[in-house]
Amino acid sequence: MIDIFKPKNSLQEALIIIVFVILVAFGYNFLSPKGIPLVNQAATYNEVSDSLLFNLTSGIADSASYRSVSLSQLQQLIKNKSALIIDARNPEAFQKGHIPTAINVPFLHMFDYMATLITIPTDTLIVIYCEGVNCELSSNLAKAMKDMHFTRIFIYHDGIKGWEDAKCSENL
């Protein structure tokens, strides 16, 4: 009966550890206030309306989540040159390709780019992007810039991947 607790080989030992880990991990997650659902739910973004985005002249009171701009809104902002587009990825990724007019402020090295950031007026309309929907660099940079008193920050959540996919479908 107790044979299961006397593993005969490495695989049996590994299996015992895995079963133990699953029980502890799920039990802890169930009891923890920071527990997460077992199956990931799709992220929903709070998109900004055209009227608010294009008529906005002063800062907006925002919650912890940053409002998202759509592809068409971003294209309009680039065409009108009415927003500063910031790429939050690292310089190597930026050099391989970026959204037109974008400047590079890599979140992971943002303190090296302070000289650039402090020259930007805090009421500038800013759109930040990174790799794509699963990337956190844009949200992290937005939070850091909000702490620097920038008031008009938006995120293009689809990132460079969304931009390039859209460019491909336009060319088809």
């Binding site: 991990a25 997650n29 077992l38 990931n40």
Partner: peptide, 12 residues
């Protein structure tokens, strides 16, 4: 599978 990995890998 993301959350299942996020829960089990650290405990492992």
């Amino acid at each position: 599978l993301v959350n299942l990995f996020a829960l089990s890998i650290p405990w492992l």
